[in-house]
Computed example of a mutant assay.
Amino acid sequence: MSSRAVMTVIGKDRIGIVAEVATMLAEHKVSIVNISQQLMDDYFTMIILLNAELCTLPRMQFCEFLSVEGEKRGLHIRVQDEELFNAMHRI
């Protein structure tokens, strides 16, 4: 995994989402560089800029881990390399 990535999290709002996601990241030595969160009616949305330089898993395994663990928690979690994310959102 490249050192920086953008992670999006979407799910029904409930207590503890930020803590759960932060714990999953910390378990794999991925740090949060910046975080933005917002409520849209009953839905929680979050965008996190990650530093994955010390990540304990290869990129595909880490993304699969987050997807599976997110699904268990009723969350849709997606991770993209920062460069790819920026290229996709350029006008």
Rank of each mutant, 00 (worst) to 15 (best):
I32Y: 04
V33K: 05
R73V: 01
I91K: 13
V9F: 03
Q61Y: 03
K29Y: 05
L39T: 10
F44K: 07
I47H: 04
R14K: 15
F65Q: 08
L57C: 02
F62T: 04
L25P: 07
S3K: 11
L50A: 00
I48H: 01
V30E: 01
A5N: 13
G74F: 01
E83W: 04
D13A: 04
A52L: 08
Y43V: 15
E82K: 13
T45A: 12
A22R: 02
L66G: 04
E69V: 07
T23L: 11
R4W: 03
D13M: 06
K29C: 03
M24S: 05
D13S: 12
M1I: 09
H76S: 14
Q38D: 09
K72C: 06
I15W: 02
L75E: 10
H89A: 10
E53N: 10
D81G: 10
S31N: 15
Q80P: 00
I77T: 05
S2W: 04
D13T: 11
A26C: 03
I10A: 02
S3A: 10
F62H: 02
V30D: 03
H28F: 08
S2R: 09
M1D: 00
M24I: 06
E83C: 05
A26L: 04
I15H: 03
L50V: 06
N51I: 09
L54A: 13
G74D: 12
S3T: 12
M24W: 14
E69L: 00
Q61A: 14
E20N: 12
C55D: 08
F85I: 11
C63Q: 14
V9D: 07
M7R: 00
R4V: 08
D81N: 14
F65V: 05
G70K: 06
M60G: 02
T45V: 14
M7F: 06
G16T: 03
N51K: 09
S2Y: 09
A52P: 02
S36W: 07
L39F: 09
A19G: 10
S2A: 07
F85L: 11
I91P: 13
A87C: 03
T8W: 04
A5K: 09
S2M: 09
I32G: 01
V18E: 01
T23N: 12
R73I: 04
K29W: 02
I77W: 03
E69K: 12
N34E: 15
L75F: 07
E83P: 00
A22P: 08
M7S: 05
L57W: 03
R73A: 08
I10P: 02
R73E: 07
Q37N: 09
L49Y: 08
I47G: 06
F85G: 08
V6Y: 01
P58C: 04
N34V: 06
L75W: 05
I10T: 12
E82Y: 14
A26Y: 00
I77R: 00
M24F: 09
R78L: 12
M7P: 06
T56N: 07
S3N: 11
S67Q: 14
F65P: 04
K29S: 13
V6W: 00
A26S: 13
M40K: 08
V9G: 01
C63F: 01
V18F: 02
A22Q: 00
R14Q: 14
S36D: 14
I32K: 01
